[in-house]
Design a protein around this nucleic acid. Structure first.
Length: 110
RNA sequence: UAAGUCGGUUGUGUGACUGCGGGGGACGGUUAUGCCGUUCAAUGAGGAAAGUCCGAGCUCCAUAGAGCAGGGUGCCAGAUAACGUCUGGUGAAGGUGACUUUAAGGAAAGUGCAACAGAAAACUACCGCCCGAAAGGGUAAGGAUGAAAAGGCGAGGUAAGAGCUCACCGCUCGGUUGGUAACAACUGAGGCUGUGUAAACCCCACCUGGAGCAAGAUAGGGAUGCGCUAGAAGAUUGCUCGUCAUGCGCAAACGCAAAACGUCGCUAGAGCCGAUUGGUGACAAUCGGCGUAGAUAAAUAGUCACACUAGACAGAACUCGGCUUAUAGACCGACUUACUUU
RNA sequence: GCUGAUGUGGCACAGACGGUAGCGCACCGCCUUGGUAAGGCGGCGGUCACGGGUUCAAGUCCCGUCAUCAGCU
């Protein structure tokens, strides 16, 4: 099952209609749909291709443990610019955001 | 030992666990050479993958031809599939030297431009010098300007001067020798005249159809309507000619289909590594070995441990050959100059 | 990925053929007004995106780099 959000039109819909939530390093945008799909959008302002790829990999690795517990939403992660990212910071941010928006039940954590 | 020149290699590594991409094996499910699931062991970014500046392959443009225009290259010889690349040489410039740099054809085919200053920027003559009573004539040594001023310097010569004459240097034309050639050396003649700019137009020689994998293929039938009809139409940079009649182009009910962000193209290629031989070298030939990413919102990550020099620049997107640009360091080889010692 | 175009004062733009970089708005000072705006006069402000080359001389010609903006599925 492919859980990646791919299509330009889907991204546009999420950006236009989605609910936004912010943490220190990340923005989370989501919209309720019939299936679960997760995408990442990294701006060109983050630097060259190597740096952008690195950020995408870190985010992907960080949300992966929660993937099976998420309900049916289209979700886009949007990292902020001007920050040095690390895996642990992103993990904390994602936990905080998912809890804050009640996308995951308390008892399902850990 | 110090300072320097040139060339080459490398571009964090190791282990454990959890993951990702594409392919393969085994097993299972299913009507299926397909699809799905489980599992196993292998495999998975660069020297520049970058910029897209050249050159090729490949694909399409009904034909792919000719001429002009346009564009490119520009010392000579070679290498190469090809090139604007590379190698070896020649000339010029720089450096004590190792060595480096070099878009380096033609200005006597023609045209243009050379601001300001200066008499004059190319058929020169203001001041000056000389002859002369003057009118006028002969001159270009000296002067000032400028980036550039009419071969340079010395001697003779003269009314004053001047290649007017002579020596040396430079230039032009010719000869001999060496070299495949660019060219070099030697030598003879001419007396000297035409400054610079061709990365200004241009001339000469050679090369050149256009677009690009977002190319293109996967399917091509079609009642009927409209347009075009040989100075028309065609996705083909422009113009002319040639070529295209089982006419062409556009729209299109209907019909076909698993379907168009899919599938193929998509990775074995002028391939890489090693040795030998030929060549100054680029490179070529022969022999042996290797099987080495193929994604499509796009795969290399996370955690822990250890090592050291504490990790720079940076991510394949059809594929090669170059060029250019970015780059922390580490290592190897050849050579030069200076000093010291033998 | 491929193909093009553009970079000139703070902002929008000129600058065919190489020869002292200009215009408008903005800004500053003065005049005008009781004061402001408008108007008038004067002035400031540029490594012509960056680095090389050709030329006596480059914003202009040639080569490379960087940035920005378009188009092609």
């Amino acid at each position: 099952m492919d859980l990646r959000l791919k299509k330009q039109s889907d991204f546009n819909e999420v950006f236009r209609k989605g609910k936004r939530s912010y943490s220190k390093n990340l923005a989370l945008i989501y919209i309720k749909k019939s299936e679960l799909k997760v995408g990442i959008s990294v701006s060109k302002k983050h630097g060259n291709a190597v740096k952008r790829n690195k950020i995408k990999r870190l985010i992907r690795a960080a949300y992966y443990p929660f993937l099976e517990k998420l309900p049916n939403y289209h979700i886009v992660f949007l990292p902020k610019t001007g920050i040095d990212f690390s895996y642990n910071d992103l993990l904390d941010d994602i936990k905080y955001l998912l809890k804050k928006e009640k996308l995951i039940d308390e008892e399902n954590f850990n």
